[in-house]
């Protein structure tokens, strides 16, 4: 595989990651979101492996394997089990104004390109054009968290945001040092267990997983 081809493949993967982000933004079914999230993880893992191969950095293979194990298998599986146990699989979320959400998403992508413009010129890495995509994925993850009204879908938005961060780490810098990546992966895994416990707590105290029921704590009650 030549360097030129690798750059092209990576750009395609970056585009796919962004596309899955938009998919997550407008997907209404929980299982559909889960599938999209797993695909995003797969693209991320593949892209990491390709960067590792072209740059000759073997520790990136470990990150790619970690991503594959965590984001494609472990987390979607944990979420699947939770959704199954809590019997919320048929829930369809009412999303208001899908076109507006999409437009905001597009604006965020443009904003990310604008923000990273000075950095793109500095970078000499083969993956430099993907930094903007990474930032856009982070911001769309935030947007998903804002627009969603259910605890489970909000968590998927949070994990999509985390995907954007991982992508930034590989695309901007060929990956963080291994100690850091292992630690980050561990933190995400702990977080996954915590939100799993949380779903049960929310369910038992509120009788639903709708976040709109959780708006008691405000100023001036």
């Amino acid at each position: 595989m030549t360097a030129g081809l690798a750059v092209q493949i990576n750009s395609v993967l970056a585009a796919l990651i962004l596309l899955t982000s938009f998919g997550l933004l407008v997907q209404r079914r929980i299982y559909g979101m889960l599938r999209l999230f797993a695909w995003q993880g797969a693209f991320l893992s593949l892209s990491t492996a390709i960067v590792g191969y072209t740059a000759g950095l073997h520790h990136l293979y470990i990150s790619a394997a970690l991503t594959l194990a965590l984001k494609v298998f472990a987390l979607p599986y944990i979420l699947y089990v939770l959704i199954h146990r809590l019997e919320i699989k048929r829930d369809v979320e009412e999303l208001v104004n899908i076109p507006t959400t999409m437009l905001i998403g597009i604006a965020l992508v443009i904003f990310s390109y604008y923000l990273t413009a000075p950095i793109r010129e500095l970078s000499t890495l083969i993956t430099r054009s993907t930094l903007a995509v990474a930032l856009a994925t982070v911001m769309i993850g935030l947007l998903i968290m804002i627009t969603r009204r259910k605890a489970v879908t909000q968590i998927i938005g949070f994990l999509a945001l985390e995907n954007g961060l991982f992508f930034a780490a590989t695309s901007a810098t060929y990956g963080m040092p291994l100690v850091v990546e292992l630690g980050v992966a561990l933190d995400i895994l702990i977080a996954a267990f915590i939100f799993g416990i949380f779903f049960y707590h929310i369910r038992t105290s509120f009788d639903s997983l709708e976040l709109k029921d959780m708006e008691k704590l405000k100023e001036d009650e």
Binding site: F195, F198, H201, S205, K216, L217
Partner: peptide
């Protein structure tokens, strides 16, 4: 485990 404490913790977490 009161409703308001679960809500506070969720807010903190997110």
């Amino acid at each position: 485990r009161t409703p308001s404490s679960v809500e506070a913790a969720w807010k903190y977490f997110i």
